[in-house]
Every structure is written in structure tokens, then in C-alpha cells.
Amino acid sequence: MNTTNRRGFLEALGRVSMGAAASVAGAAHAGGAAHAAGAAAETGPKWGMVVDLRKCIGCQACTVACIMENDVPEGAFRTHVSVYEVLQDGGDPAMVMLPRLCNHCENPPCVPVCPVDATFKVEGTGEVLVDASRCVGCAYCVQACPYDARFINHETQVADKCTFCYHRTAVGLLPACVETCVGGARNFGDLNDADSEVSRMLAENPVSVLRPEMHTNPNVYYIGLDEALQGRVAGEAAYRPPLNLPADHV
């Protein structure tokens, strides 16, 4: 992670009130205390991620870091990099990387379908979290997510997903996937701060989101995303079968 991005992240974190930070710290792994944080962060940064696909090499360091940091069970992922083989007409195939995670949407469809209010959105900072103490494992939210970013944890029997490493950002650390991205493809920061690295990246580059037709207003943006891959979000394997596209799509 570059120094500028880290410095901007820490400056944004410093604008969170002590009360809000304490509430977030108590939500380390989306347990019962996390739900109270939903109304605690009414001021401060709004977190988002910009993924620069021009820099992603598909090394899966982010996937491994997330698994280790969040104790993700075998066979499941909170984040991973899908790898597609895009075939040009009459040309050589090209490998295309697509890092995927929960999009922490402004209008998350997973929230209203939860019958016990276990899934909620933190006011202000914007993370979408799961209160494990309330979740009954019905999987309604898993089915509602248009990004295939949720799963039922077979060890805890409750819904699980990326949290933007809520427990890390509360104490001034970057999400584990961002910290370990060797190419600097993952960038995390305050979308409300016009001077933050992520805001500058959004201002200076054409960006895309996955499944724009769903109108969820995601807070995960992509630079260099091929139009043909915007809807390629199904499944959890790290490799995808070849995708045949016209030559001008690569």
C-alpha cells in the first residue's frame, strides 16, 4: 500500500469521534456489540474501495490475507480474485483479473430481507455488517445479494461476508486485503474527503461498478473493468472458464 493512501486513511480515521471509535472497536468480529455501532458513527469518514485492475496480477495474496485475518472456514471466501480467460476473435487469449468482495452498497438489498434485523448498515462510515448474535442462518441475505458476496459459515451457521475489516479500521489499520496487495491494486479510504487517494482516483479515472443495473450504489469501484465482466459475479472459485468476446472487448 502506498504511503499517501495510508496517510490519508489515518487522517480520515482521526476525524471519527472517540465515542464512535469505541463502538466500532467493540464490533471486532460482527458480534452482538456491532449492532449498536449502526447508530454510533453519524459523523466522520465514509469508507470505500477503488480497485485498479491495471495493477492486479491475480496473486491471491488478498484472498489468503483475508482468510487468515478473519478466520474464514475452508471452502469459503470473504474476498477473492476471479480469473477469466478472454478470447479474442482470431487472437490470443488474455487473462483478466476481477477482485471481488462485498460492495457495501448505499442501498443494500440484503438489509430489508433480513427477518431478524441481523444485517445492517453503519450510519456514516457505510459498512454493511452482520450481527452474528441475531442471525438465524436463514440465508435470505445470501440470496438477495447481487454480487454473490455472502455465504453461510458452516462453522458458525450464520451469514458471513467482507466487513472492510471493521475491527482493523477502528484502530487505524487498513483492511487486510489492502495491506497485503503487492501491486497496489486495492485502495481504501474516505470517499467524503476530496483529497483522499480514493477520491482522487475516482476523479481522475473512468470507473465502473459491478451489476450497475441493480441500482445498489456500491462503494467498491473498478478502474479498467471490461464492460463484458460487469455481470460476471456468480460462484466462488478463483478460476473461470474461457469467455468468448469480440476482439474489441480486450
Rank of each mutant, 00 (worst) to 15 (best):
R232I: 00
C114H: 05
L173I: 11
D89W: 10
V51N: 06
D195G: 12
A94R: 14
L245S: 06
N192Y: 09
A237E: 14
M18A: 13
A61K: 10
A76C: 13
G8R: 01
T216Q: 04
L229N: 01
V136D: 14
A65F: 03
G172K: 10
M95I: 13
F120Q: 13
A37F: 14
D52V: 02
A28G: 08
A228T: 13
Y140V: 00
R54S: 15
E179V: 03
G126P: 11
S208I: 00
V209N: 07
P242Q: 09
G90D: 10
P146C: 13
G31E: 06
A94F: 04
Y147N: 11
V64G: 01
V86G: 04
G235Q: 11
N5V: 00
A39M: 13
C162Y: 00
S196F: 00
A22H: 08
C141D: 05
T3L: 14
I57T: 11
A37G: 14
A20N: 12
E179I: 01
V142P: 03
A132W: 02
K121A: 03
E11F: 02
C102W: 01
G91I: 02
A41G: 01
R211V: 00
A36G: 14
G183F: 05
M97T: 04
Q230I: 07
A238E: 09
R168A: 14
N187T: 08
L53N: 02
R186A: 05
A22R: 11
V130F: 05
M95T: 15
R54T: 14
N187W: 08
A30V: 10
A194C: 08
H215A: 15
E227Y: 10
F9H: 09
C138L: 01
M95C: 09
P206C: 13
A39R: 14
V113K: 13
G184R: 04
P108W: 05
E85W: 03
C105V: 00
A61D: 09
S133W: 10
R78F: 03
T3K: 15
C135N: 08
V83H: 03
H215D: 15
G137K: 09
C114G: 06
R168T: 03
D148N: 15
C177R: 06
G189F: 01
V209W: 06
M68G: 06
M68W: 06
H215R: 13
A28T: 08
K161G: 05
V128I: 09
L191N: 08
G31F: 06
G224I: 00
A176C: 15
V233K: 12
G126S: 11
H35Y: 15
W47E: 05
V113M: 11
T63D: 04
C162L: 03
A234N: 11
C145I: 02
R232S: 13
L53H: 04
R211K: 01
H167I: 06
H167V: 04
N192V: 00
L191S: 06
H215E: 15
M214N: 04
T4W: 06
A159Y: 01
C141K: 01
Y239I: 09
E42H: 12
D89M: 08
N70V: 04
A176S: 15
M1T: 10
L202K: 04
C138Q: 04
V96W: 00
P218R: 05
L129T: 03
H167P: 02
R240N: 14
A22I: 07
K161I: 05
G75P: 03
P212C: 07
E155F: 15
D117L: 09
